[in-house]
Simulated assay, not measured.
Amino acid sequence: MAGKGTPATTLLAKRRIAHKLHMYDHDPRQESYGLEAVAALGIAAERVFKTLVAEVDGKLTVGVVPVTAQLNLKALAAAAGGKKAKLADAATAQRATGYVLGGISPLGQRTRLPVVVDASARRFDTVFCSGGRRGLEIELAPDDLVALTGATVAPIAG
């Protein structure tokens, strides 16, 4: 891999998990990092997942959903065993994960947070998620993503 690795890529290498790295030139004018990855890499949008940090009953929790979907906060709260969820503010998400917005990976986060992966991920042999910086996507089997993050799998996309 050209350039510096990330905690996400380090975790995958350490655990010897089969994966592929996909890099592209990030355009800072883009508003949707996930859709930028879809266009740059020429892949189906439903296979590219975004990582969102939310607060479920005051506890930070990560939701991983397709880039074309919204995170259903009520479904996330239920899947995480809580009652109410709201998106965390950007500074909180960046501080907790150690990643910048647009590069938040569900893998290798600074603080290990509970993760819920949308059930649609299991429809594919491989899915894409952020590699820990803008312009870097990791392709891996959804079951590996779930195992590495200790995720719950539930329908959380709206």
Rank of each mutant, 00 (worst) to 15 (best):
Y24L: 13
K50Q: 10
G58Q: 10
A93I: 05
I43L: 14
L87K: 02
L11Y: 00
A147W: 06
L60A: 11
V48K: 02
T51S: 14
D118I: 11
A77V: 11
A37F: 03
T10Y: 13
D57S: 07
L71V: 12
G82N: 11
A77Q: 06
P106D: 05
L52N: 04
P28W: 14
V116F: 04
E137S: 06
K83F: 15
R47N: 06
G42H: 07
D57M: 08
V153A: 03
A154M: 07
E55W: 08
I17D: 00
E46T: 07
V117S: 02
L76M: 11
V53Y: 01
D57F: 08
Q109R: 12
A54W: 04
R15D: 06
L87A: 06
Y33G: 02
A151E: 01
A141S: 06
G42L: 12
G98Y: 08
L60D: 05
S120Y: 08
K20N: 08
V67F: 12
G82Y: 11
L76Y: 02
L35H: 12
A44H: 06
L113K: 04
T61E: 06
E137D: 10
D125I: 05
A121M: 11
R110Y: 08
R123P: 05
L113G: 01
T152M: 13
V116S: 03
A141G: 03
S105Q: 02
E46S: 13
F128T: 01
A39R: 13
K50E: 10
Q109Y: 09
L145S: 00
V100C: 10
E139C: 09
R95T: 11
K74A: 15
A90C: 11
A54P: 08
E31Y: 15
P155Y: 07
A119S: 14
F128Y: 14
